[in-house]
């Protein structure tokens, strides 16, 4: 079997930079003195030593009145109340699930903060504690919202809405959380017939659009729906969206529904989805998407 193989020289590596940044901001690096201690407040990414305010991470300064923070380019996800996250169930415990959300510590999903499938109300009983594994078991993916943040920084999640819950049949893409914009809505139905959940924690879920089956609260039908085969065109579109996201990430562009959709529309000129994995094609798509974003911003 002979395939098409392209091997490039290291010197011909594609530079993925798309934004024309002429003016650089002031960067701070670990141990660098930001200012004297007087009349400033110490924020994230800084510490005090010898009456000086010093930076502890490499990044740019964000200043709110007297509060000084240094924001690193990338870090683990730091949760805030109301964020939409996508996570994976690690463990089933007493009355709660442990969820991995790319955060510093594992997140918690209490049994009391979930809606059972079909909207059925939960009775507090030993029985439904034993049913927990039937609802969500180890390795399952869920979408959820951050309900509260504990003092040690770990998150408590809830899925008390029909839009949250278990995710079946789709693709998970992991990106750096700093590339996700905080928006009002993180659930998008793209015009190409694909729905994406852009989790604030950098996990993106791509799935074929759900039909309105969920509205009929018939539990059996929902279960059947989970097992429906996904058509080949849907799967190809999902793969294309996934590759578009990869292209945007390689060029360090912010991800939201518009940037993903622009990249998707630009990618349509490549017929084969796998051609999008080519570094030149990735750069091309990211560049065109960036251009369109700039034009939209100017208008």
């Amino acid at each position: 079997m002979t395939g098409h193989v392209s091997i490039k020289l290291a010197s011909e590596r594609v530079n993925h930079c798309v934004a024309a940044n002429n003016e650089l901001p002031r960067f701070y690096t670990p141990g660098e003195v930001i200012s004297g201690m007087q009349d400033f407040m110490r924020g994230h990414g800084t510490y005090t030593e010898d009456d000086c305010l010093k930076s502890s991470v490499a990044g740019v300064m964000q200043k709110v009145n007297k509060l000084i923070c240094i924001r690193p380019l990338k870090s683990r996800y730091v949760g805030e109340i109301g964020d939409v996250v996508v996570g994976r169930v690690l463990e089933v415990q007493q009355r709660r699930w442990k969820i991995e959300t790319n955060s510093r510590l594992d997140s918690v999903l209490q049994l009391s903060s979930v809606n059972l499938p079909g909207g059925e109300l939960r009775r507090r009983s030993a029985e439904d504690e034993q049913m927990m594994r039937k609802h969500l078991q180890e390795g399952d993916l869920i979408s959820a919202e951050v309900q509260s943040v504990f003092s040690d920084g770990s998150l408590s999640l809830h899925t008390r809405s029909l839009k949250y819950g278990k995710l079946v049949q789709g693709t998970l893409v992991k990106v750096f959380p700093s590339l996700i914009k905080r928006r009002k809505n993180h659930f998008h139905n793209l015009p190409c017939g694909i729905s994406v959940i852009i989790g604030n924690n950098g996990y993106i879920w791509i799935s074929p659009q759900q039909q309105d089956i969920l509205l009929e609260d018939n539990k059996d039908e929902i279960q059947n729906y989970e097992l429906q085969p996904v058509s080949r065109t849907d799967r190809e579109t999902m793969a294309r969206v996934k590759n578009c996201i990869a292209a945007l990430v390689a060029s360090k562009m912010m991800l939201d529904d518009t940037s993903i959709m622009f990249a998707f529309e630009e990618s349509l000129k490549y017929d084969n989805v796998k051609d999008l994995l080519d570094p030149e094609a990735m750069l091309d798509i990211a560049f065109l998407a960036q251009h369109r974003i700039n034009t939209v911003m100017e208008d």
């Binding site: 930079c17 650089l24 960067f27 990044g59 740019v60 964000q62």
Partner: peptide, 18 residues
């Protein structure tokens, strides 16, 4: 090296003050 890396990787959103 760190400063060069930052210059390559920074995005406009990083500098936006709240």
């Amino acid at each position: 090296a760190v400063r060069e890396h930052l210059a390559e990787g920074w995005t406009k959103q990083d500098v936006v003050t709240i």
